[in-house]
Amino acid sequence: MKPPLYTIRSLVHAYDGGPPVLAIERLSVAAGSILGLVGPNGSGKSTLLKLLAFVEKPTRGEIRFKDRPAAPFSDAVRFQVTLLTQEPYLMRRSVHANVAYGLKLRGRSRDCRPQVAAALSLVGLAAERFADRKWYQLSGGEAQRVSLAARLALQPEALLLDEPTASVDAASAELIKAAVIRARDQWGTTLVIASHDRQWLYEICDDSLHLFRGRILESGADNLLFGPWQPGPSGFWHKPLAGGGVLRVPPPPDDQAVGVLDTRAVSLTAPGAASPQGLNTLDGVVSRLVLEKNTRRIVATISVGLLALTVKLDPERLQALHLYPGKAVRIHFAPQAVAWCDPA
């Protein structure tokens, strides 16, 4: 078996002596895999990507690349790893010069026109129309795609993407997906991709990682329950939901604490089904069904008022319940299934 491309141990990162924004005890990324990063804003996704790109040095702990220690500017990673940041910067040069810049650094600038053109076409930009444009002659989405082309042209071993589809239209998102898969299949590139677009992400990822407040949540812990919580009867705490219904949870560490609910603890039934004693019973509507690529399971998103909960189902269960987006369902879960995040 190939060694993992990245191995992280006891990593803690903080900016300028502030509180830690990222704390990862252990993580490895398999070579040639596509890893998705999900989590709310500020959960540490961008920080993790920057550390994996060796743009910054972690405050504590180490990141090994191909089982060797690596640091910013070190030769072991400089030409192997590249990151497309959320707000990419185009240098004040032509599109061609921007895409060729990394090639030039690698001493591959001779006759790089075809390579640049190929990279541009991977992101759906015709070289003859775009190569000679100046940086200020591009729309936001075009700039994003040129930046991606500049990374693809390098055929990197590790390609890290931070919200690559945030400012592009649906057609471009499909192009980027195709380019990413091609990079992995043709060059064996390992990808780590952070995205809010879960559907887009789940369609290409082999595995996904849930980050919250700088920590990795256990796999399956896709549901986050936010306060404020109020003390209620029989030892539970409550939160009334918009559109009726009440969420019951075990006593939280504080009234603003965030609960994590394992998708496996949530069961789905037909509307109006009897509610077992002691469980949370919520009525909602199926809002999205997505196939999880590697497990062949169905990820269902259920809207309960303003709350969105994720449930994973076998295809057989989906059949039995006749689920389709828009269908009303009832969900149950035990209050004790809610665990509390450590305050970061």
């Binding site: 790109a53 060796f54 743009v55 590249t82 940041t85 990374r151």
Partner: peptide, 12 residues
């Protein structure tokens, strides 16, 4: 973002 961009492209 310039600094980050340049590092990610592999500058010394």
């Amino acid at each position: 973002h310039l600094r980050t961009t340049l590092i990610t492209l592999g500058v010394s």
